[in-house]
């Protein structure tokens, strides 16, 4: 609670709000306790929850520091809001950036429209065709519509995370045909459920299926 028995003397001189020593040492004790917990937790493997546990404990510690050492608990509410806004906008920053980085290529149907090799984006013409052929051997005679746009080996994400998830979405189209807008329109018209034809320049994404679901 922000107790306002401090600071606002009529005469204008600032009157500090002094906490007892015990509050400081108790805070320190709590911080050391949580440090031990977080180190201890790192020796146990919780799988994907490892990161979550570490962040939650760190946030607890940070809250304690802010509330007591930084006096937020006893301070104007405004200052808590200021700190909270930093957290909010940081969360927006990280979350919205990860909307991109965590789902690249999920809707990309025509892999050939992307740079074949992210580490060499200016590779063009026949060299690019060669790279494409290496990725999708001619013998297979098909391009998976749901293949992720990110080239395996450049990013070490699993090769095709969504390929098995949505097998019905993958149709076969010859690479030449996929380049022309009319062909992609015919793919869409032929009722392949979630085939999203957003690769070619003229096809508006709004014409394709909504993202992912």
């Amino acid at each position: 609670m922000s107790s306002h028995d401090h600071g606002h003397a009529i005469g204008g001189d600032h009157v500090p709000h002094v906490l007892p020593y015990a509050a400081y040492f108790a805070t320190w004790g709590a911080l050391m306790f949580f440090t031990i917990i977080t180190v201890g937790a790192s020796y146990v493997n919780f799988g994907p929850a490892n990161l979550l546990i570490a962040v939650v404990i760190a946030t607890l510690k940070a809250t304690i520091v802010a509330a007591i050492f930084m006096h937020l608990w006893f301070d104007h509410r405004m200052h808590s809001m200021i700190l909270g806004s930093a957290g909010l906008f940081l969360a927006i920053f990280i979350a919205f950036t990860m909307f991109d980085t965590e789902s690249r290529g999920h809707l990309e149907s025509i892999t050939g429209e992307r740079p074949a090799d992210m580490s060499n984006p200016f590779l063009g013409g026949s060299a690019r065709q060669k790279a494409m052929n290496a990725l999708y051997p001619v013998g297979s005679n098909s391009v998976k519509l749901s293949a992720p746009g990110i080239v395996p080996g450049v990013f070490d994400v699993p090769a095709a995370p969504s390929a098995s998830a949505a097998p019905e979405a993958s149709a076969t189209v010859s690479p030449e045909a996929s380049a022309s807008a009319s062909a992609s329109a015919s793919v869409a018209a032929s009722g392949s459920t979630s085939a999203s034809v957003s690769g070619s320049v003229s096809a508006a994404p709004s014409a394709s299926a909504p993202p992912k679901h």
Partner: peptide, 14 residues
């Protein structure tokens, strides 16, 4: 101190 409280577990522990 606060920044380090996050850096330590993220970099060293997980």
């Amino acid at each position: 101190d606060l920044v380090w409280i996050y850096l330590f577990p993220l970099l060293y522990l997980v």
